[in-house]
Design a binder for these strands. Structure first.
Lengths: 335, 335
DNA sequence: ATGAAAGCGCTAACAT
DNA sequence: ATGTTAGCGCTTTCAT
């Protein structure tokens, strides 16, 4: 900036005024300064700028995802990016792979860079370590799962409701032996969906058979294996509620490999690419990751704009998409 | 940091030394300082730190993708994140949706934040605007597509080779009327794959029929429509080479909706989730986005470590995965 | 081994 | 309308 001032033959502050679109610069000088800026290919150092401009923002936010490469996370990421971009805010993103330690490390790095706010899909259960951060003015929004022991804004899907609808749908098609396939019980959404599953069975007067509940299925291979085991039980399930993406994919693979995809009903939580072209096409409870991300980002920015109202806990609805696989009846026939 | 010094009853520089693990601090003082740091929950401001430490790095890199939410981009992103994380480097990511203007804006924002390096999946054709940046010491790596009019490191897949293999495979199964479905011709990879398609036909002595070439298929709907049109030609193709993800998905949908998925061969460029469970399963030329990302990031960091050797242009191999759809013969029978 | 003073690139506050 | 000075949080340089 000093170079620009020298080349333009003006004072440092004049350059600063031009760069920041502050009033009080004559057109003549402004033109000179702009010419010098162009000639030197100058760009103001955002970090230095924000240093003196205390109490001001770095115009960056941090985003902690399970994995930037998984479709749910990346859809969330994109929606957040778009909302942030509209405000000239850049996004740091990181994956923590359900590792609480990594969550803390990431948030620590974000803090070192003085991000204005942080959006987290949390891996840990206890967020008291963020209390100071929050008090210091960093906006904090939790997505997909709630904060642990911390009063903070949260946006999530209606996991229990979605599971109730899913299982209710299968019950409505006559199923009584419905298996639950799910992720690690340490994950909030996995627990909630299991809760919905049990609630739906209970309200239909169907006893829960623990043999039909399989959790901890972190990848499609494990899920496929679990499905195969379930189907070789003496009294196998007639329907599968695959409560997460990997379970759904594993379930599909397993059913096809045994050739039972038309005999056993399958209903998944979360939509999957190409689910519509499979035969039978896959019925799902669809979340809306775009809406989750947008809502979370809007909430974050509202806080950054000074909204100090009590914390919000948004629950976004999910939708049942019936495509065929969830409408197979217990005798193995499509409706 | 001043607060920490005050609380610990030491000089500012002593705190700085402790924070930076510099030698020359007595264990007694160091303990005091560490206690004060813990008590105040202090974290050094990385931006301020890098300000004085001139010529030093911000430990951040920028990443310009087509869309953080598309599977190819996000796989790339993850591989880059992992490589960066191992070095304590944080990643800014942004989507430019094939918009050259947005590419420039993003890179401009990165520059404002003084990122150490930038990895780009370029949307524009002319990167001379980055010349100054590059000379100023910002490492620059292009992925998936080359730089335009700029001497810079590049990592990409073997697009021509992959297309030659794909079309050769279809020719080998007896096809002579092979359609090409592709993305916008403004996109480098789309052009390269078309070039491979034509080369393969030429070397087999098959004349190119321009009626069988459809480009500009930005989404599955457009691709599906194109396939339907192709199949209602008086002399329709017996095989489809869908040279990009969206084209493949659209092609699959179109074939199923007409009920021709067992009569018309389909071979896609880029793998798709669930391609293996479809019936017939989808044959593809698979790229390795993880390897692309890792290679690009390693190249970037090698440059940041001072490697000044001539620019590198890596071409990574692709693999044909035969699953069924690409092995249907012209008379519409599986082999 | 420790710290005071200067300065990184910039903006706030205060001149002129 | 323009420039000067101080200072943001930190590291460097140079004393002690």
């Amino acid at each position: 900036m000093l170079d620009v001032a020298a080349l333009a033959g003006v004072g440092l502050k004049t350059v600063s005024r031009v760069v920041n679109d502050e009033p009080g610069v004559s057109p003549a000088l402004e033109a000179k300064v702009r010419r010098a800026i162009a000639q030197l290919n100058y760009r103001r150092d955002a970090n230095a700028s924000m240093l003196r401009r205390l109490g001001s923002k770095t115009q960056t936010i941090g985003l902690v995802l399970e994995d930037v490469a998984n479709p749910f996370s990346s859809a969330l990421h994109r929606a957040i990016e778009d909302t942030a971009r509209a405000r000239g805010v850049l996004v740091f993103a990181g994956s923590c792979d359900e590792n609480p330690l990594r969550e803390r490390e990431l948030i620590g790095s974000f803090r070192d860079r003085r991000v204005d706010g942080i959006i987290v899909v949390p891996a840990s259960e206890d967020h008291t370590y963020l209390y100071g951060e929050q008090r210091a003015g960093t906006a904090l929004v939790f997505v997909d799962r709630p904060a642990g022991h911390l009063d903070a804004d949260t946006v999530g899907s209606d996991n229990v409701g979605g599971a109730v609808v899913a299982v209710g749908h299968l019950l409505g098609h006559g199923h009584r032996r419905i298996a639950f396939l799910g992720d690690l019980p340490t994950i909030f959404t996995a627990r909630e969906r299991l809760r919905g599953y049990k609630e739906a069975l209970a309200s239909a007067g169907v006893a829960v058979d623990e043999n039909l509940i399989r959790t901890g299925l972190r990848d499609p291979q494990l899920a496929a294996q679990a499905v195969k085991e379930l189907l070789s039980l003496p009294n196998p399930p007639t329907a599968l509620f695959t409560s997460q993406n990997f379970s759904t994919i594993g379930g599909i693979r397993a059913l096809r490999s045994i050739g039972l995809e038309r005999q056993v009903a399958l209903l998944g939580f979360d939509d999957v690419v190409l689910a519509d072209v499979l035969d039978p096409a896959i019925s799902v409870i669809a979340q809306d990751p775009q809406a989750l991300g947008r809502t979370a980002a809007e909430l974050l920015f509202r806080r950054l704009d000074g909204d100090g109202s009590p914390s919000v806990h948004d629950v976004l609805p999910v939708t049942l998409i019936a495509r065929g696989s969830g409408e197979i009846s217990p005798n193995g026939r499509a409706p």
